Amino acid sequence: MQIFVKTATGKTITLEVEPSDTIENVKAKIQDKEGIPPDQQRLAFAGKQLEDGRTLSDYNIQKESTLHLALR
């Protein structure tokens, strides 16, 4: 499925993911596309910060959802 990640600079990244993917996997995909190390990424959805060990389906993130990326 496709999801979107909006960066602090307003850029939107499109990612191909599975509901079973962990947040860690998603951060690795962002690193592949943007070169941002996962340990510098903070992802949020619906106002909640997402934890590495959880999956997209844990957070009820569905196709075409938009996550927000902040850098630490």
Rank of each mutant, 00 (worst) to 15 (best):
M1P: 02
M1Q: 04
M1W: 08
Q2K: 14
Q2H: 14
F4A: 04
F4H: 12
F4Q: 05
F4M: 06
V5K: 00
V5A: 04
K6R: 15
K6A: 09
K6H: 14
T7E: 06
T7W: 09
A8I: 07
T9Q: 12
T9G: 15
T9S: 15
G10S: 07
G10N: 14
K11L: 13
K11G: 09
K11E: 08
K11R: 09
I13R: 02
I13A: 02
I13M: 07
T14L: 07
T14Q: 11
T14F: 09
T14M: 10
L15I: 12
L15M: 05
E16P: 05
E16C: 04
V17N: 01
E18R: 12
E18P: 04
E18C: 04
P19K: 08
P19C: 04
P19M: 14
P19E: 11
P19D: 08
S20G: 10
S20W: 11
S20V: 10
S20C: 05
S20D: 15
D21N: 09
D21S: 14
D21T: 12
D21L: 06
T22S: 11
T22P: 10
T22E: 04
I23G: 02
E24M: 14
E24Q: 13
E24G: 13
N25E: 10
N25H: 13
N25Q: 13
N25I: 13
N25L: 11
N25M: 15
N25T: 12
V26C: 03
V26P: 00
V26A: 02
K27N: 01
K27D: 00
K27A: 02
K27P: 00
A28C: 04
A28V: 15
A28K: 11
A28E: 12
A28F: 14
K29T: 05
K29C: 03
K29Y: 10
I30Y: 03
I30V: 05
Q31C: 04
Q31H: 15
Q31D: 07
D32L: 12
D32C: 04
D32M: 10
K33M: 12
K33G: 06
K33Q: 12
K33Y: 12
K33F: 10
K33W: 07
E34L: 10
E34Q: 09
E34K: 05
G35D: 07
G35Q: 06
I36S: 04
P38L: 15
P38W: 11
P38Q: 15
D39V: 14
D39A: 12
D39F: 15
D39N: 15
Q40S: 12
Q40W: 11
Q41F: 11
Q41T: 03
Q41L: 04
R42E: 14
R42A: 14
R42H: 08
A44G: 08
A44D: 11
A44K: 09
F45E: 02
F45V: 04
F45H: 09
A46T: 06
A46N: 15
G47N: 07
G47P: 01
G47A: 05
G47H: 08
K48H: 15
K48W: 08
Q49R: 10
Q49S: 11
Q49M: 11
Q49F: 07
Q49C: 06
L50F: 02
E51H: 14
D52K: 04
D52R: 04
D52C: 04
G53N: 13
G53W: 14
G53C: 04
R54H: 14
R54W: 10
T55H: 07
T55W: 04
T55E: 04
T55F: 06
L56A: 02
L56P: 01
L56S: 01
S57N: 11
S57Q: 13
S57T: 13
S57W: 10
S57A: 11
S57M: 09
D58M: 06
D58T: 05
D58Y: 13
D58Q: 09
D58L: 03
D58V: 04
Y59E: 04
Y59M: 03
Y59L: 05
N60W: 05
N60P: 03
I61L: 03
Q62G: 13
Q62W: 15
K63T: 13
E64A: 10
E64F: 15
E64Q: 10
E64W: 10
E64R: 08
S65G: 05
S65K: 03
T66I: 07
L67C: 02
H68C: 05
H68K: 05
H68Y: 08
L69C: 03
L71Y: 09
L71E: 13
R72S: 14
R72K: 14
R72A: 14
R72I: 13
